[in-house]
Design a protein around this nucleic acid. Structure first.
Lengths: 219, 219
DNA sequence: TTTAATTTTTAGACAAATCTAAAAATTTGT
DNA sequence: ACAAATTTTTAGATTTGTCTAAAAATTAAA
């Protein structure tokens, strides 16, 4: 398995929750910042290797083998991110690019020992679940902040966008995993919200609220 | 800088202590388990990029830029090896191949923090010095065990061959960094030696003795 | 439903890194 | 010093992964 193939599998894996049928060529191309023609070529090759199913113009869908492999890469990515934050003093907005490199390192023992060193963490620094050794992924029950109504309260358990600009925006407002967020007010026409976090109030856009996940808290 | 280029630089760096002039094409090819023709091509490309000096049939010699880059790779390799042994319970014969992958990860901060986590180690698990941030390499004074005379004593400070078969051979005889070794007898005709380590006596070949470094101990 | 817009695929080219086979240069042995 | 052996380079082919431009298929719109 080449580095490039692994990246394609991971991308298809990440995108296929948003598509009932196959993941469109263009979606993959956009996500990977490459051209549709390159994707078309590669998808065809991966299909030959039976890592995914593919019919012309119908997009891509991971096979069982392909998914197994993709989950392994995701597990490694998230464990490395956790390592960087927990052991090497990185902040959550700095780890993605480095984990993108580290996720391709091959060694069963390495990843097993890393998991042990970190105390078998369940989620990464962005709240995403870390698949276990057998590839099982725990599904965390969570709702988008944007769906919360005025007066509701929740604990931040994850983000949808892990870009450093967004994560730094959250830092600025002291939003982090585990923080309690209260919706003080909600603007109907644009979906913007007035929030309270740590006794501090501020306003966020609907776009931002669409990238924050909360777990409802019984308060 | 591609992964392949980096590997060539590192190999030339490692080999050039053994050659006064340029490192021969064949020596590089053998070390990298590739063909001389491939080496010839790549060397030419690296010379164009001014990472090394090269004249036809005269072998390769790193430029200052090339050496700077090579040392960085070596620093990363040795820090990662130390990490694997110190933090992830690897033994010294298991780390080479994984460090070979990890040495190409790009991130200044990562390597700085790794160094800190490990307590700024001076040598790797095989006794090789870890270059500092500025690329300075401490030269450890050491002699080959094969050069020791009957009755002499030393402390093991390094090995020349880091292959897992050799390292496992050393483990079997309880030879490790820091161990005191006494030459009880030396066979003139084949250079084999009778050693004492931990009050245990055994015999090793000249080939083995040529791959163990000791620091003379004033006893 | 026929055209227009969009998406996807194909064809052909290219750069990186490698290989084999053969030619050229250098070194060694007598 | 000359021939033989060895080392190194060149020439040409191959694989992987990418790209551009153009053709084909699908979807959307009038």
């Amino acid at each position: 398995m080449t580095l490039s193939e692994e990246n394609y599998l991971k991308t298809v894996y990440n995108l296929q929750k948003h598509y009932k049928k196959g993941v469109p060529t263009n979606a993959i191309a956009e996500e990977m910042e490459t051209k549709a023609s390159s994707v078309s070529d590669m998808i065809k090759r991966l299909a030959e290797k039976e890592l995914l199913f593919y019919k012309k113009y119908q997009g891509a869908k991971l096979s069982e083998t392909g998914e197994k492999h993709a989950v392994k890469v995701v597990r490694k990515h998230r464990l490395w991110e956790t390592f960087l934050v927990e052991k090497l003093n990185f902040s959550w907005d700095e780890v993605h690019d480095i984990a993108e490199q580290l996720e391709h390192i091959e060694s069963e023992k390495l990843i097993k020992e890393l998991d042990k060193l970190l105390g078998y963490p369940k989620t990464d620094p962005h709240g995403d679940p870390i698949p276990d050794e057998d590839g099982n992924v725990v599904k965390v029950e969570k709702r988008m902040l944007a769906e919360f109504k005025k007066g509701e309260q929740g604990v931040c358990v994850g983000v949808n966008d892990s870009s450093s600009s967004f994560l730094q925006y959250l830092d600025k407002h002291q939003i982090a995993l585990g923080k309690v967020i209260t919706v003080k007010d909600k603007e109907e026409f644009d979906g913007s919200m007035q929030l309270e976090v740590d006794h501090r109030e501020f306003n966020i856009s609907n776009l931002a609220a669409n990238n924050i996940y909360l777990k409802t808290v019984n308060s």
